[in-house]
Design a protein around this nucleic acid. Structure first.
Lengths: 202, 202
DNA sequence: TATATATTTGACCAATTGGTTAAACCAAAT
DNA sequence: ATTTGGTTTAACCAATTGGTCAAATATATA
């Protein structure tokens, strides 16, 4: 009972994840999610009362995965360069496993910004820690003067954007060759930290 | 007659642009576009036979604006650094005027990649020119070794991504202070070229 | 085994939505 | 003034969609 229960719920969530991430809230159809899960449509409403609630379950999970857990990397006792390397490596690995995540999350946020304000404040990211680290490095003359905001926005931009724009990059720069485009994304695990550290090192 | 004709058509396009860019194809309602244009819904179908056709008109226009016209900047007779500055300046100006453009275009592309393959091939971007320029600079020892693909992807990532992620950046880094976040985007016209050139200069 | 409880299904519904159509309207030409 | 052409509207329609409900089925409990 409980096991079957959990199982069905997982099946539903997996199906909903696929459909919502590909089509967005407006484009997704409850029937399509039911088909994907190979269950009756009514069963969706049995476990999640409405499309809204089912979507929220998927979206919250996606948002948590999308928000990089920088603090873990930051608090480790390694050089800034290695921190950047470790962050990019783990974040791009996540993106390769969840290529539709960024587009999905960012799109739904901009479609409904008010809804996530609460979630964001709840998560409570503190840029202070990064601020302190950067300040020390700057004072020691190791890196150029850069704000933590620029630092984090530039780094995440270079990691995430190519995944959002993969189709267009693949079309324009790789003659629609999927393999080459995919390889390009992979290699960025190495090229981004190199590029990034060159930009800030003194 | 003709004047009125053109006028109505423009009114419709303006209304459709607003609604489609905010809600996407699936989220947009023909009735809402009609309301925005303050006309009868049937009139939409009189000028554009279907939602699809009206959407295509908006999307093609948006795609053309979104694809940076790099060649213009590239062919001018100024240093690479100034080319980068000019490109970022003009591109971010466009983004400030059309903040919803990137999310709209990229989202609809990833929702329907096949449809734009034709458009892309038609536009025919040639990275060769940029390739040649970079190669020369590298040989002259002015910049580090970097492929034109990395060059263009990194540059455009840093320009575009913050606009797609504005809501989340504003929430996390600026305590939902719109003005500060907007100011941040503006200042990137200067900070991106500086950061970027530091990364590639030798 | 019999009873109660939870799960799954098929049939159905009300609301929404893109689209159609015939009639009304309006400006210019005759 | 009447006709003619394109333009605009109101009423309507068929299909889709999220959601409901009662019946059926499986599962656990007594």
């Amino acid at each position: 009972m409980t096991e079957k229960n959990i199982n069905t719920e997982t099946i539903i969530l997996n199906a909903a994840r696929v459909v919502f991430q590909h089509k967005g809230f407006d484009g997704a159809r409850m029937q399509e999610i039911a088909d994907e899960a190979k269950i009756n449509k009514s069963l969706l409403h049995y476990y999640y009362r409405s499309k809204e609630l089912l979507f929220e379950a998927i979206f919250n999970e996606a948002l948590l995965k999308f928000i990089p857990k920088i603090s873990i990397v930051l608090s480790s006792d390694i050089s800034l360069e290695m921190k950047v390397e470790a962050f990019v490596e783990s974040y791009i690995n996540m993106l390769i496993e969840n290529p539709f995540l960024p587009g999905f999350v960012l799109n739904e946020i901009s479609r409904n910004p008010e809804k996530i304000i609460g979630l964001i404040l709840q998560l409570g990211v503190n840029p202070n820690k990064l601020d302190a680290i950067l300040q020390k490095e700057i004072e020691q003359g190791k890196i150029k003067n850069i704000s933590s905001k620029e630092f984090i926005v530039n780094l995440i931009s270079m990691c995430v954007f190519p995944f959002i724009a993969k189709a267009i990059i693949q079309g324009f720069l790789f003659g629609n060759n999927n393999k080459e485009a995919q390889q390009f994304l992979l290699e960025r695990k190495k090229s981004i930290p190199k590029f990034f550290m060159n930009a800030i090192k003194k």
